[in-house]
Write a protein that binds this DNA or RNA. Sequence first.
RNA 1: CGGGGCGUGGCGCAGCCUGGUAGCGCACCUGCCUUGGGCGCAGGGGGUCGCAGGUUCAAAUCCUGCCGCCCCGACCA
Length: 574
Amino acid sequence: MLWSRAFIPTLRETPAEAEVVSHRLLLRAGYIRQLGAGIYNYLYLAQRSMLKIQQIIREEMDAIGAQEFYLAALNPAEVWQESGRYEVMGDNLFRLKDRYGRPLCLGMTHEEVMTYIARGELRSYKQLPQIWYQIQTKFRDEPRPKSGLLRVRQFIMKDSYSFDLTPEGLDESYEKHRIAYCRIFDRCGLDYIAVEAHSGAMGGSQSQEFMVKTEAGEDYVVLCRQTGYAANLEKAVSRPKPPEAPDPEGALEPELVHTPGQKTIEEVANFLGLPQTSLMKTLCLIADSQPVVAILRGDHQLSETKFQSAAGCQEFRPAHPEEIRELFGASAGSLGPVGLNGVRILVDEALRGRRNMVCGANRDDYHLRNVTPEEDFRGEWHDLRQVAPGDTELETGAPLEIVKCVEIGHIFKLGYKYSHAMGLKVLDQNGAEIPVIMGSYGIGVERVLCAAVELFSDEDGMCLPVSIAPFEVVLTPVKITDPSLKEAADRLYAELKAAGVDVLYDDRDLSPGVKFKDADLIGVPFRVNIGRKLAEGKLELVNRRTRETAEIDAATAAAEIRRRIEEARPQARH
RNA sequence: CGGGGCGUGGCGCAGCCUGGUAGCGCACCUGCCUUGGGCGCAGGGGGUCGCAGGUUCAAAUCCUGCCGCCCCGACCA
């Protein structure tokens, strides 16, 4: 492509609304333009990168025997009503009506449609396993689109679905995907982490997310460098920091303490001269309309996802002050589990074995000393707390760190959720009807691009990996009006094109500084300067990421450039 | 949905408080000049001041309502 003919609207200044690095650079480099909140147009450069990412995905999916479909994005509501997700997805699902008033929605993922196809056509165990995938636009009415392409309302996703006869078969399909995902992200040149994940509203058992560490992310991952443990904060487990003070010994009876005006854990701890670790925190949640009480160590935070699974509820919210008053006879500053009847009590594992702690007395301005779980109250033991800084690895006690990440892919075992809901069954060897077991596997294509930009950029712009950059090399004759430079550039351009290299030829009559700045900004991994050294038969090959400059012979430049591009191309390591 | 901010040529902003001529930098067009890191000189084009209503002789500016976008929170396969 000739730069003089290409639509690459680079900006010298950053549009005011862009905060995160990838958003700023994608705008400045002329990759994307915004159309509305969470809605973007992908211009020439973005589309080239997106297509390269999709091609890598396609190759690796095909390599595990997956079959590409093209599915309807416009879905009749009935299909989603069957699975129950028409309600579950709430406002996140874009809904519309056709001219006759029939309800439709825009697909935010395609479990329903894939299951719909499968149940109509799959009849026999002989047809399994199957892996079907699509690379298509998804729609989600996000409550708050943000961070450029990282959280949007319309985006491209690769999603695949596996259909197996047995759980063992699902294990195989899942493992195939895991390896394919590693290969895809390797080939896209990303540094990523595979972490244990919560399977959330999708339902299912085992689940892993592929994460890229970046400040622009919205997920937190708990990592252990020594043991390799890696899990989403939503599901991570840990060994808590030990209590700061020993518990009083002995079989002491609960004792009322007057604590006027002391409501928060911090206030009560200070008032009594105890560390927060000697207190119990009592939270009241309304889970699927039923009150549930959660007891945690004073310094710990409730993990919402863990609470939800422990309570086994669809949704929950903090109780309102009136509800708390009615249940406990006290307000939120003085709640405790002692003497509570008829309410489910969930107790965090970190309190197991603790004795004679402090909690609220269910009487305003009073707390109780010497409260011991299992003796003074009973509840169901669960892991309820969120991993906190300073916690250590559960088994080994090795240090943990918590890092901010963006999720680029997610694989999980769905199990029978959709086959049951929608009646997907096949006949086995004995002629008996058995439900099909499913898996679901997604990759956010824009997020792969964003993650690459977040990972590889500097003050001048992007430094994209060769495999997903819109061009592999840019030719920059320093002075296009100089016939000898132009002639050399023309020839090299023709040779590179003939060699199958993705080359952008900056044939614009602009000062070299402008051309260098533009090339740096759009992130092409190699630049060839054609300038003063040409008289000696030399060109300069500049590596965008390292800034290393090599002199190469003009005569054999095309072959040399090609060699270096291939050398720089990220390889699958799995 | 709660809190905050912003809407003025393509981009970045000033002007608004204290009503009266829409302005600056970049980008763009023409010509000359220049050519190894966003070059110089000269000339030029482009704006319903987010929308609607109100106050006023007069509104970008004051008042009311609405819309849009961004950020924080809530939310989120």
